[in-house]
Nucleic acid binder design. Sequence first.
RNA 1: GCGCCCGUAGCUCAGGGGAUAGAGCGCCGGCCUCCGGAGCCGGAAGCGCAGGUUCGAUUCCUGCCGGGCGCACCA
Length: 528
Amino acid sequence: MPEITVEVPREKDHGDFATGLSMLLARPARMAPRKIAEIIVNNFSLTGTWVERVEIAGPGFINFYLKPNWVYLVLPLILDRREDYGRVDMGSGKKVQVEFVSANPTGLLHMGNARGAALGDTIASILDYAGYSVTREFYINDSGKQIENFGLSLEARYFQLLGRDVPVPEDGYHGEDITETIRGFIDRYGDKLLQSEVLERRAVLVEYALAEKLEAIKRVLQDFGVRYDVWFSERTLLESGAIQDTLNLLRERNYIYENEGALWFKASDFGVDKDEVVVRSNGLPTYFMSDIAYHRNKFQRGFDRVIDIWGADHHGHVARMKGAMTALGDDPAALEVVIMQLVRLYQGGELVRMSKRSGQFVTLEELVEEVGKDAARYFFVMRSSDSHLDFNLDLAKAETNENPVYYIQYAHARICSILRQYAEQCGEGPASGTADFNLLREESEFALARKLADFPGEVASAARGLAPQRIARYAHELAGLLHSFYNSHRVITADQALSEARLALVSATRITLRNALQLLGLDAPERM
RNA sequence: GCGCCCGUAGCUCAGGGGAUAGAGCGCCGGCCUCCGGAGCCGGAAGCGCAGGUUCGAUUCCUGCCGGGCGCACCA
């Protein structure tokens, strides 16, 4: 006996629910699918159900047609649950951590970081809505070789601004923002570091610059609607001995060996094509080593699921990271890595070059200033993370129906306007869920309500697939149905009872739209 | 060469073991004495190629052909 599955057909002419059961039974029963379907249908009792009729169609599908008003059951539910409509209990409180952006605190946030910010924050929101207990975390790479390099660059600028000709290292940080930072430092503290011992001088400059850069990153992310629960410093792993502990554990378990003065992790034991250095011959741990200790720390904190959002250029890191987790005795399946493909900016049909070298380095800050938080977030999230993203700046800026963000927000504002009108004319707030929904007989009303009923299922799918683009699309489709309904029928009519029923319908739509927008981190404006 | 991701409408992308594959942009044609035209309605146009699994493949598997990204004692 195969599993009985019932699905919602794509085509509404095929009923509200359908099953392909008879096709699956055809072989074992040695009988034509349609014949099987007939037997099933003849033995199906409709009494006491919402099912109005059952039909056999196509190769043997059994289609169930519900009484038309069933969808309106959802309206009182939405009006009652309000901001909780759409919440589902998939996670049953399991602890999940989403780590995202984690950009080097040595510079500004670029488009890749921006996509990661929108994706990570939205995934976190969706998981929260799906019943998980979510922690948003930013890993600060404040240690290691790039910090050393950062120190050299800062020092060079410091000398330069004080009249000494010291070059910034070839592979150092050449950005204008670094010079600005040092200028600020000199304004406050003068030239006293000229006398300091070299390591001391660099340490002071790094300390100052890191704090400033990190503040800037926090501020930009906040303007982007992203708030973190935890800012985790890589340096604390070194200071607490966590890195050494983790290395010792790996060594005990025989996954570490020495070669050419460096320590290597046997990644090849876990299906990776080659081993990886964890401690360089100069004695300093690599980024990979810190990351192993960091992820071990995550599991020690009791997360049931650990989700990382990484750029495509880090995908090679996934297999060895999971290998390291296996080596440490953690469940590699509990570590999920969302790899996001690269972002390309387009303006006027032309690709906007984003290289540090050309100087046209577009930052998140500039993007938000240019197109606004809402458009930026929506565009970053409307595509699957494993698809390349062509970001059309002109479209994101357009204040017309061409822009999906305005299209959705306009639907929300439009409903608010209707509600205001109603309140003015009738002197009271919107109707409650007690309206007579039997009055809603138009096709566009039915379609709208049906879409509203889909929302919790969409949230569950989005959570299951870590796929925020599903919510983005859902919001757009829901807005479309609202606009369509609005254009063919009036909400406020001379018929009081009908008006109240329609008011309940649009109120429920407003609630659902707002909940979807909130998941995406967008505003739901009452006026535009 | 090896690994990961992607090939769906002119362009950018959703979707996904089933019955007529969706949206935006662009293109063509309609709709404002009426709750916000920042809107609506209609039209043309598509699953890279070849095998396999299956009652059924655009969806799963393999190969090929395109494209992106990795393959450091960088992160």
